[in-house]
Structures are given as C-alpha cells and as structure tokens.
Amino acid sequence: MPTTNPITASLHTPLVLDGAMGTELEQYGVKTNDALWSANALLTDPEAIYQVHARYFQAGADIAITDTYQANVAAFARVGISHSQALQLIRRGVQLAQQARADVNPRGFVAGCVGPYGAYLANGAEYTGDYQLSAAEYAAFHTEKVQTLLSAGVDLLSVDTMPNFFEIQVLTQLLAQQPNLVPTWISLSIRDPQTLSDGTPLTTVVQWLDAQDVVSGIGVNCTDFAQILPAIQTIRAQSEKPIVVYPNPGDHYDPHTKTWTPVPHALTFAEVVPSWLAAGATIIGGCCRTTPADIAQITTLLKK
C-alpha cells in the first residue's frame, strides 16, 4: 500500500518535478498537433523522449513523468495500432524515463502518467470536464493502462489534469483495487482556485481525496501561475497530504488546431516558487510550455 512505501515519506519533502513533454518534443521535430499529441514520439522518435527526460534530470529534476498522458489503448486503436502493440508502447514510455534516470540521476523517481478520458477526446475536454461515462466505462478505459504502468515498474503514479469529479472517484476506487499500487497523486484541472473544471467545488473534491488512503498527494496542473497560490491554500485548508503543483506559464491553447499561442509572461518560477513553498506545496514542476531552464530555476530554490 502507498502508506507503507518509503517513497511516500519523500513526498513530504521538497522535490523537483520535471516540465513539459509535448512542447519540448516539438523542438525535436515531433508532430504533436493531432489526437495522439506527445504519444506520437513513442511511435516515431523514442530517442527524443529519452533526451527530454535526460535534460530535465540534468536540470535537477527529482521526478520524471512518463510520456504516456495521451498514450492509451483506445487512442492507439484509432490509428491502427493493435492492443498488444499499444500496451508495449505504454511500457516503452516507462522504460525511456527509467533509462534517462539511470544515466543521469539514479536517485530520481519515475512517475507513470495517467491522463483523463477528456484527453483521449482530443477536443480540450481535459480543461472543461464536459463529458460523462458510466463507472464501468471509465474503469474499462483506465484499468489496463494503470496495470501496465505498474507492471513496468514505475515508482509513482501521476494522475494528471483531472477535470471530472465522477471520473476521479471511479479511477481512485480502481487504484485501490490494485495489489501492487505505488504512491499516487491526483492532480486536478481547475476552472479557478475554488472550482474543478466540471464545476464541482474544489473543497468537495479535496475533502473526498483526503479521505482516500490510496491518494498520496493532491495537486493542480496545467493552469497559469496566478491560480496556483490560492489553489494551494484551498487544498491545504482541507488536507495535510503532500501538494503537487505544475502549472503552465499562461500561454493560450487552441483545442481545434492543437497549438499554443504565447502570451507575455509577467512572472517567472524564481519569483513565485517561494510563496508556493510557504503555502504548503512540496512537489513543484512545470506543465505545457515549460522548459529545462524553468526546472533549473525551481531546482535552485528547492535545493538551497
């Protein structure tokens, strides 16, 4: 159980998470503007995935999140990939992170990434939570991926960008059924610092997650810097579990073209991370559009 895993204790101390995968892969020429997004690299350029992980570890990251956010059996099936091949690609995502860890920071951790059903829809639904499946359908979508990540030997599970409270509940209950579960954080997609993307009050979500023994940490990701401090305060008021934050810098995402438009950034990680630490965050990194240079800034602050 996660409560007895020695890694769980580490989550209560400041740790540096890595940064963006998809937008970094674009720098290597990987196509990301389709339904597979960063998972395309598992098919076309696994070496680029390795290089991105290695650069984050070199920048000081303690934790690498696998390139499996958009990698699931259903998404791969849409492009003609067999069931067995899809599971192997998910395992490959873990192996690439493990190899980068072994080569650069053997003391680091590998977190297997589980994205929401909304990411599979590839229409921006991970930022709205505007979808509804039955409990059985959510379980069917997530079970094999979770089991594949666990069997591949991840140290942690990073359940990312979750916008839909019912999906969160079903997935958390599914995790509780896994005999070999590792420490797991649930990171939320929020509308604002008081509201999950689907409209559920954030206090309701956090109170529920706080009561689940299988949840080792609660987080917020892929929202802009301005939302992070008040979100940390909302979470900390309801839970003493480790808090994980990995924002984007505020650029605008178009779900139709699947591209990002830069906007002027008023703040840097160096300016905001101290207040996040003071408010109770312990695991800090970046999401879309962040870079190894950003992670180096965080490393400097967390490892003084």
Rank of each mutant, 00 (worst) to 15 (best):
L174C: 06
D62T: 05
T184W: 05
L277G: 10
D254Q: 08
M1G: 15
T68N: 09
F166G: 03
N40R: 10
R78H: 09
D198T: 02
A266W: 15
P262H: 08
W37K: 07
G112A: 06
M162H: 06
P230N: 04
Y127T: 15
V220S: 01
T44C: 07
P249N: 04
A86H: 03
S10M: 15
F141M: 04
G60N: 04
E271I: 06
F225Q: 01
I243Y: 00
T259Q: 10
A74D: 08
P14I: 05
Q212F: 01
C222Y: 12
Y28S: 15
E26K: 02
F165H: 14
A20Q: 07
P193W: 02
V214W: 13
E26G: 08
S197M: 11
K304M: 14
V30T: 01
T234Y: 11
W208N: 06
Q51L: 14
D160W: 10
L277W: 00
L157Y: 04
H265V: 10
T128V: 03
G22M: 03
P255I: 00
L150G: 06
D34A: 04
V272L: 14
Y28K: 11
L150D: 04
F76I: 02
A77M: 09
T32K: 09
Q132C: 12
V245K: 01
F165A: 15
V30C: 01
G112S: 04
V114E: 00
T172A: 13
T32D: 07
A48E: 06
H265Y: 10
P193V: 05
Y120F: 13
T300C: 11
V114M: 08
R78M: 12
L267T: 13
T172G: 03
N248E: 06
T172S: 10
F225C: 01
D67Y: 10
D103Y: 09
Y253M: 07
S239I: 09
H256I: 13
I90V: 01
G80K: 09
A293V: 12
S197A: 15
S158A: 13
S187I: 08
R107A: 14
A140G: 07
V154H: 02
T44L: 05
D67R: 14
D294P: 04
H256W: 15
W276Q: 08
A74S: 11
